Computed example of a mutant assay.
Amino acid sequence: MKAIWNDTVLAESNDTVVVENNHYFPAESINKELFEDSIAHTSCPWKGRASYYSVRVNGELNKDAAWYYPEPKEAAQQIKGRVAFWKGVKVVE
């Protein structure tokens, strides 16, 4: 699987975990120089508190385009250490 935005591969892995129709990529599969920490957080009743990354490609910023759960709840342990995408990021095979 590949996560692509602005014609650039943000992450690539054959080992994604699908939860609620989102592919969670291993953290080590992301192109780290394209990611910036965000102050945004959201909460999910069964997954826990999500943190976000913004993505910058060719000078363009996609704010809070990726999220992860640093300390997921017990029911969501399969996504620990993984990153998912939205906001126009295409996830393709």
Score class of each variant (00 low, 15 high):
A66R: 05
Q77M: 12
N22Q: 12
W86P: 04
K63Y: 00
N6L: 10
P45N: 12
V55S: 06
A27R: 14
E20S: 07
W86K: 06
K47L: 11
E12I: 10
H23D: 15
F35I: 11
W5T: 12
E74Q: 14
F25E: 12
N62F: 12
A66P: 01
H41Q: 15
V83N: 06
V92N: 04
K63T: 02
V57L: 01
K47P: 05
S43M: 10
I30S: 06
P72K: 07
I30R: 11
W5N: 07
V57M: 03
S51G: 07
S51A: 15
V92L: 14
D15A: 13
N14V: 10
T8S: 09
Y52I: 13
A84T: 01
K47N: 11
D37H: 06
S29L: 10
P26N: 13
A3W: 03
F85N: 06
E74H: 07
Y68L: 14
I4G: 02
G48R: 02
N6S: 12
Y68P: 01
Y68N: 01
L61T: 14
D15P: 01
S43F: 09
Y24F: 12
S29V: 04
K90S: 14
N62M: 09
Y24Q: 08
H41A: 12
V19C: 05
E12R: 07
G81E: 04
D37G: 02
Y68V: 08
E60N: 11
V9W: 04
I4P: 00
F85H: 02
E74Y: 04
N6P: 00
V91F: 05
Y53W: 09
D15G: 02
A65Y: 02
H23M: 11
L61P: 00
E60K: 14
F25T: 08
E20T: 03
V18N: 09
T8C: 09
D37A: 13
E71S: 14
I30K: 02
R56H: 04
K80A: 15
M1C: 05
V91S: 07
E93N: 13
Y69Q: 05
A65M: 05
Y68E: 09
Q78N: 15
G88N: 08
Y52R: 09
N14R: 05
T42R: 10
E20P: 00
F85C: 05
K47C: 06
S29M: 07
A11V: 12
